[in-house]
Design a protein around this nucleic acid. Structure first.
Lengths: 237, 237
DNA sequence: CCAGCTATATATAACGA
DNA sequence: TTCGTTATATATAGCTG
């Protein structure tokens, strides 16, 4: 949009980036509002600028409500709050401790996320770098493990399906044979059926969607050769 | 946009509303992505359709991280609330909330450290990988920034010291000259001192540790050419 | 950083398949 | 629901104040 085509890439010129951010931000907010009104949708939009400034949009219901709904939706594991009530006296102490711990952990987490690095010394930075590097190694290893599991499972299923296909192929053959015999009985003057329907390539590499005449429709739906969704889920989910 | 002008009002025709929702939703997500890339912003977008289906966008860092940042940001605004309440009942609530948050954050942190990855899906793993990658980039960038700062500071100091050395070198020369003249006055029969002590290469590129005879010891310690500890602190601390 | 302008790039409403 | 097409409506990049 605008005078020149734009590449989907970080705008290096700081001024331009800021101006574009301002303009596009208002555009985005407008669009968010429009879809919420036009389509009766609930929309929550959060934008942090590079410098950490917050901008947000939420339709009539406030952001908090949307976020709650979101968490409810995505994390059905809403933890039933662990309320082992200790004695009242130690509450304040407990509370303060908890707060302090939360702060420490959060500060740590920021560092893990590469934020607030100004307060760290060279040594600490190097430590952090090492930790993140090793974490990345673990994550990648886990990713490959997952992929391997999915692959071997798919291979298993593949084998199973091929066996099923072979059996069905046999059945189809038998049916055709029966049919041919019947035809010979009831109409002895007719020619023998040609053989070109014999092996419909079940179990081969290429399947086409053309229906195999002679198989009954129930079996056909039951043995659809298209991979069911649940088998692929592991790879994308 | 499109064939007809549109009113900012709920679309009554159900079909049209659904179609428009689908189209605008993808448009909105695209725009959100664009601004996040072009302007280096952190964007989180949550959309619930009328029928309650969830759609979301979050740039490289996952939605959870953005929401946490959001809560951290808006925490300040919500501060006055708990202090005003103060009834015992709300205290337990606060406490429970705090506890839950701590748990969430700690679980997150484990993931950042590459632990407890079994519960994560492929998509989440890839997100995490991206986050850690970007964090590492920030950390390395900060490291290099620190090193550059240290280097330029050292260069500055180096220049300063060289100037001091030059001045001191001059002084030494003068002293020697004075000494020579004194010697001539008090002992006119002695030879003139040889000149090989003249310029001990101060201000040149290479310094050796050989002491410069003739300088007085006080000045010598003051202008020690070994880098003082405070100058190196940035690099190791 | 905001407002306004203009030429273009994009988004999308209506429609058909 | 989704996809493609087309005519238009909008958004916005680059500039100027």
């Amino acid at each position: 949009m605008g005078r020149g085509r734009v590449q989907l890439k970080r705008i290096e010129n700081k001024i331009n980036r800021q101006v574009t951010f301002s303009k596009r931000r208002s555009g985005l907010l407008k669009k968010a509002h429009e879809i919420s009104v036009l389509c009766d949708a609930e929309v929550g939009l959060i934008v942090f600028s590079t410098k950490g400034k917050l901008f947000e949009y939420a339709n009539d219901s406030c952001m908090e409500r949307i976020l709650e709904r979101y968490e409810r939706y995505s994390f059905a594991e809403r933890q039933p709050v662990p309320t082992a009530q200790t004695s009242m006296g130690s509450w304040t102490l407990e509370h303060a401790k908890l707060k302090a711990r939360l702060e420490v952990v959060q500060r740590n987490q920021k560092h893990y996320a590469g934020e607030d690095l100004e307060s760290l010394s060279m040594k600490e930075l190097q430590n952090l770098e090492g930790q993140l590097g090793s974490a990345l190694k673990h994550i990648r290893s886990r990713k490959y493990q997952l992929m391997h599991e999915s692959i071997s499972m798919l291979q298993k299923k593949d084998k199973l399906l091929q066996e099923q296909n072979n059996q069905l192929s046999k059945k189809v053959k038998e049916r055709e044979k029966e049919l041919a015999e019947q035809n010979q009985e009831t109409n002895s003057s007719s020619f023998v059926l040609p053989q070109h329907l014999d092996s419909p390539h079940l179990g081969g590499e290429a399947y086409d969607n053309g229906e195999v005449e002679g198989g009954n429709s129930q079996q056909e739906t039951a043995t659809n050769t298209v991979m069911p969704q649940w088998m692929l889920r592991h790879l994308n989910n």
